[in-house]
Design a protein around this nucleic acid. Structure first.
Lengths: 175, 175
DNA sequence: CAACATTGTTAGCCTTGTCTAAAAAGGCTT
DNA sequence: AAGCCTTTTTAGACAAGGCTAACAATGTTG
């Protein structure tokens, strides 16, 4: 089995993520921590660890601590990043409540590809920097652009400057 | 087994979706169509059908056509809807290319919850109706609000009207 | 209507991932 | 160092879902 090529299952990604986070929080990770965090039987952890060790993503001698290999840590970081990006997007852009956002991110993080994630990152940045673009969720009304809520103040400023003040002057690409 | 309560696996959702689409396209569905569409062995289809029949989501006598029950069709429609919403969001809002969008939607449709889907719907609507809010992906630049691309025309209009012209006047909720 | 091609089903195997129960290892505590 | 409690591992079962190979039904066509 080629460890570098094989796609990792959602389940194994979850283990990797949990290991990474426990190490980050506690300094070290033991099987118990993982089983508690994932709500899974201890034997399931042993089982998963064997798979991860075989793939060289984890270092683990029986009855000992759990550590990530270089490779494993990289994958874990990636999963965490996807999780964070999704969470941020759901809460900041879509104004979804934190619990729902977290739950959704936990599932989607295992299936979303890089292209989408990077676009989401850009979209979040856009939403943060541009008072034109940023919309706000208003219950019973849908998404409303901030200009519509903040009186005309921003629009005046926009006109005065002739461009979106956070992006620089208009480009020639415009219609 | 309580057919109404049990969560459906991603795999069975895929079968349901395929059956729905084949019926929509061809008027009827047979096992072969499904195996071809999903790229799966014929026996896998038989197998899945048994599960779906047991759950009363599909009607199917051996060697006969495949039909959806009321229940099954409802679930199928739901999956299709999630797929479409995701695809639209990825292409229209995030400007991701159609292939990537479709691939991502195929996977995410099985794990995304209703709350997020409905927010995405609203966001797409917002993006379509509000020239303030709508952003456009510009390669090498990120998302740029349409105002920044379209010269100041829209901004002038915005100022003249004092509000986002697609949403009505500013509300008191504004800061 | 009989032969053959296509389609569908069955049977049996494999992998992944979970569980429980039982055994083994480690670590405290006296 | 002996005993006890916790943690880990092993062993074995099970469900899902996929595959191949073999068999059965259907249907088409001389």
């Amino acid at each position: 089995m080629d460890a570098t090529t094989t796609e990792l299952s959602a389940s194994l990604e979850d283990y990797l993520e949990a290991i990474y986070q426990v190490i980050a929080e506690r300094g070290e990770a033991r099987a118990k921590d993982i089983s508690v965090r994932l709500g899974v039987a201890a034997s399931s952890v042993t089982n998963a660890l064997q798979g991860l060790v075989k793939r060289e993503l984890v270092q683990h001698a029986p009855y000992d601590q759990i550590a990530l290999t270089e490779q494993g840590e990289q994958i874990a970081r990636n999963v965490v990043r996807r999780h964070e990006v999704l969470t941020d997007f759901f809460t900041d852009v879509l104004s979804v409540d934190p619990d729902t956002a977290a739950t959704a991110a936990c599932k989607i993080e295992h299936v979303v590809g890089d292209t989408i994630v990077e676009r989401l990152v850009e979209y979040i940045k856009y939403d943060q920097r541009c008072n034109h673009g940023g919309a706000t969720w208003v219950e019973g009304k849908g998404f409303v652009c901030r200009n519509a809520l903040d009186t005309r103040a921003l629009c005046d400023e926009c006109t005065a400057q002739g461009f979106c003040r956070f992006l620089g002057p208009p480009t020639e690409e415009g219609a």
